[in-house]
Amino acid sequence: MNDAWHGTELAWIGLGSNLESPHTQVSTALEELAGIPTTCVLAHSGLYRSDPVGPLGQPDYINAVALLRTQLEPHDLLDALQVIEQLHQRRRIQHWGPRTLDLDLLLYGQQQISTDRLQVPHPYLSQRSFVLYPLAEISPGLTLPGLGALFDLLAQCPMGTLNRIPV
């Protein structure tokens, strides 16, 4: 490995959008992740269409998962993700409500983090097909800290109406 990446950690980011051209929002955000300082995008899943979670009457979501290698500490990475959300005019009006862009720090290496601002692994990760299936696409043999093997989590979380968008 290049010395420039000494002291790095792998981080998995969940992306989602259901407002203002969701496909474009997620695709653009995937590109913008590469602009985070001391961070590179190693891989990302395809795009998936999912039913909304939360208040009724929302449009469907477009989701993806990206794998990053970063030198940023978890809270600094969270700050960088929130900057990208703001570039997409993210408004936090309603819990689980519609949004232009949602970037979630799903996993940070094998760390378990619990602070007022950040929970890693991300809460509900093990129950969300729109996270688990894209995650399995890029990291199929992953073991999630405190949650177990991704393979086992997939067996307990049916794909349901989730579908991968053809390229």
Rank of each mutant, 00 (worst) to 15 (best):
G16T: 08
L68S: 00
L81N: 00
D102L: 09
A66V: 01
S17H: 01
V120M: 02
E32T: 10
D60I: 01
Y133D: 11
P145R: 00
S139C: 12
M1H: 09
G160V: 11
G46R: 12
E32N: 12
L33K: 10
T24M: 05
C157Q: 13
A4M: 11
I13E: 01
A43N: 11
Y133E: 12
I62H: 02
L72N: 03
G16Y: 02
Q89Y: 15
T161A: 14
A149T: 14
A43H: 04
V65E: 00
Q58K: 04
G109H: 01
D3C: 04
V83D: 02
D102T: 06
D102E: 06
T28I: 12
I84P: 07
S27N: 12
P140I: 07
L132K: 09
L42M: 12
A29R: 01
Q25C: 08
L87Y: 14
Q25G: 01
E9I: 10
I84M: 04
Y108H: 06
M159A: 15
L19H: 06
I138T: 09
R49S: 13
T143R: 15
G35E: 13
V26R: 00
Q94I: 15
G54S: 01
T100S: 09
P59I: 06
E32L: 15
D152T: 13
H122I: 08
L15D: 05
I113P: 00
Q111A: 14
G97R: 05
L105A: 04
T28F: 07
S27G: 08
D3G: 05
G148A: 10
I165M: 08
T8K: 01
A64C: 05
E31I: 05
R90K: 14
H44E: 11
T161D: 13
C40E: 11
Q112I: 13
M1W: 13
V120I: 05
L125Q: 02
L33N: 03
H6L: 14
Y48S: 06
L19I: 06
T143E: 14
T38M: 07
Y124A: 14
R117D: 13
A11N: 01
L107Q: 06
Q94A: 05
G35N: 12
I113T: 03
L153A: 09
L125G: 03
L118Q: 00
W5S: 02
A66N: 02
L106G: 08
A34F: 03
S45G: 03
G7Y: 00
R117W: 03
Q58M: 07
T70L: 00
P52H: 05
G160Q: 10
P121I: 08
G14H: 01
F151M: 14
D104G: 11
